[in-house]
């Protein structure tokens, strides 16, 4: 602390930040709630997209696998910000109108789904063939083998990388600033424009994202140590 003071750090800074939060509690809470809501919808959607398309890719289901590959490549190789512009500002020209809220969750869901398809494909493909053969030997059909063997094992392999994708989904909701959807970043910037408390505003904004992201990262490490597959596999 004394070294911080020597650097010209003002300890009243913390109380300034707190009074900023206190004075704008309603807006900030609403913004955070929208960030979490949009993230939750997108993560749930990205989970199902990844599961279904990842399985289709890993098992080379005809047509679906190829379409999934195109989807993954288009999304991975174009910036998500341009995808958001295209959905919100480009589509209305051809008559497709989406609300800001819809674009907010849809854009990050489509994006997260593409990355998750790759995560799950890699996870499913990492399941040793002999385990699936064991499933067939026990009399399971293709779908039961997938549900009872490939999914539990491959899903565990894919879990850390898919949580990484969900972390990026949360961070990418900040881009909804460009369509004025009042999630956390948009809200804090609006409050900052009114109050001109630049330092306080950006401190709160950065701290909130770091708390969310670091919590999720800790979750990955916890799951990695608790869900690790036995070495014998």
């Amino acid at each position: 602390m004394s070294s911080l003071l020597a650097l010209g750090f003002d300890p009243s800074f913390f109380s300034d930040v707190w009074s900023f939060v206190d004075a704008n509690a309603d807006e900030l809470q609403a913004g955070l709630r929208r960030t979490l809501l949009v993230s939750a919808i997108a993560i749930a959607g990205a989970f199902f997209i990844g599961l279904v398309l990842g399985a289709a890719r890993a098992h080379r289901v005809p047509v679906v696998s190829q379409l999934a590959a195109v989807y993954v490549e288009v999304i991975r190789n174009t910036p998500i910000l341009v995808q958001i512009f295209f959905l919100f500002y480009g589509l209305p020209q051809i008559g497709v109108r989406l609300e800001a809220f819809t674009v907010a969750w849809l854009a990050v869901m489509i994006w997260g789904g593409a990355f998750n398809t790759e995560n799950f494909r890699a996870g499913f493909e990492a399941v040793p063939a002999r385990l699936r053969e064991a499933g067939f030997a026990l009399g399971f059909g293709g779908i039961s083998t997938f549900l009872n063997v490939t999914l539990p094992i491959g899903g565990r392999i894919a879990l850390p990388s898919s949580i990484n994708t969900y972390i990026s989904v949360v961070k990418n909701t900040s881009l909804m600033y460009v369509i004025s959807y009042p999630e956390l970043t948009t809200t804090v910037l609006q409050v900052q424009a009114l109050t001109l408390q630049t330092v306080e505003a950006f401190t709160v904004l950065a701290a909130t994202y770091l708390i969310i992201v670091w919590t999720l990262s800790a979750l990955i490490r916890f799951l990695e140590s608790h869900l690790a597959l036995p070495k014998a596999l």
Binding site: L189, T198, F202
Partner: peptide, 23 residues
């Protein structure tokens, strides 16, 4: 590492463009 990986890049760029000159 954890700080700059944890922040959305948009927020980092806002900090550099709007916050640093205010400091």
């Amino acid at each position: 590492i954890e700080f700059w990986r944890g922040l959305p890049i948009l927020v980092t760029i806002f900090i550099i463009y709007f916050l640093l000159p205010a400091v």
